[in-house]
């Protein structure tokens, strides 16, 4: 077996390097002032930590958290019943409906954002049927865009868990006198929590850190943390403040994961 075991060793070390090294560099960059990643002549400074309090950044972090939370909740409210309905479809058509749900993802994400952008303008194709949405630059525009793009990521994991569920548990509970509502709240929903958890992760994290979506649909008025970071790294070349904000994002990820994991445990018990 030794021969096969060796196959994953190099990958492990490369991953340690590619995951660990950038975090170390980012932490170093956060507390120094440098030119790019050139550490020669780097000086220790806490300036960035002070700038983190500037309203631009606090507002961006707040926007990210609120908008993506709302989008995630809407995705859940739509996605759960839809996933549930798909499990009820006969096997022959189930596959087709699943493909229907996933196939929009083969269309370029940026282009779908642009399509929404065009529709949200006061002058759009919708004028021909007498509608002018004029939503560009509003929070609703960003939320609709997020739900549209990340909804399949909510439906899919929930469907997978619901579809694999042991049907005899449901039959048993019905036999023992549970009403339909009870079957759902006491059996089906608790058993599907792991799917909900990964669905929430897969919609919340990418929507909270998106930058092209808020840039186009927010009309430059609403900034999310992704926009700020993109601006710092790709336009102003302030790697130091950019790194600090990325560390903030990484902390948000860890926080979200911990909350979701705890919820998961709590709800099952």
């Amino acid at each position: 077996m030794d021969y096969l075991q060796r196959l994953s060793k190099p990958y492990k070390w490369i991953m340690y390097l590619l995951v660990g090294v950038p975090i170390i560099i980012m932490i170093l960059l956060s507390f120094t002032s440098t030119l790019g990643v050139d550490f020669s002549g780097a000086e220790f400074s806490l300036d960035n930590l002070g700038r983190l309090n500037e309203p631009v950044y606090t507002q961006a972090i707040k926007n990210s958290l609120t908008l993506s939370s709302i989008a995630t909740i809407i995705c859940f409210l739509i996605g759960y019943p839809i996933a549930f309905m798909i499990t009820k479809i006969r096997d022959k058509y189930k596959w087709l409906i699943l493909v229907m749900v996933i196939s929009p993802m083969w269309s370029n994400m940026l282009l779908r954002i642009i399509a929404w952008e065009q529709l949200f303008k006061p002058n759009s194709l919708l004028n021909t049927i007498g509608i002018s949405l004029d939503l560009l630059g509003t929070r609703s525009a960003i939320i609709i865009g997020m739900v549209s793009i990340y909804l399949p990521f909510m439906i899919f994991p929930i469907f997978t868990v619901l579809d694999k569920m042991d049907k005899s548990l449901i039959e048993a509970s019905v036999d023992l006198g549970a009403t339909k509502t009870q079957v759902f709240t006491k059996i089906i929903f608790p058993l599907s929590i792991s799917g909900v958890a990964s669905g929430v992760m897969m919609t919340f994290l990418p929507s909270a850190t998106a930058f092209a979506l808020p840039e186009r649909l927010g009309g430059g008025r609403i900034l999310l943390i992704g926009n700020v970071i993109e601006n710092l790294f790709k336009r102003v070349y302030n790697y130091n403040l950019g790194s600090l904000l990325s560390i903030v994002i990484i902390l948000i990820i860890f926080g979200a994961m911990r909350i979701i994991n705890r919820q998961e445990g709590g709800l099952i018990i």
Binding site: S8, K12, M15, V19, I25, L29, M201, I229, F233, I253
Partner: peptide
Amino acid sequence: TKVLMLSNIPIVNPDIVTGLSLMIVFSF
């Protein structure tokens, strides 16, 4: 489990974090 956890990191990480991490390593 150790290797799997490491390999799951790029899947869980939002794209912007993965992109930035690689960009920093590459320029380093």
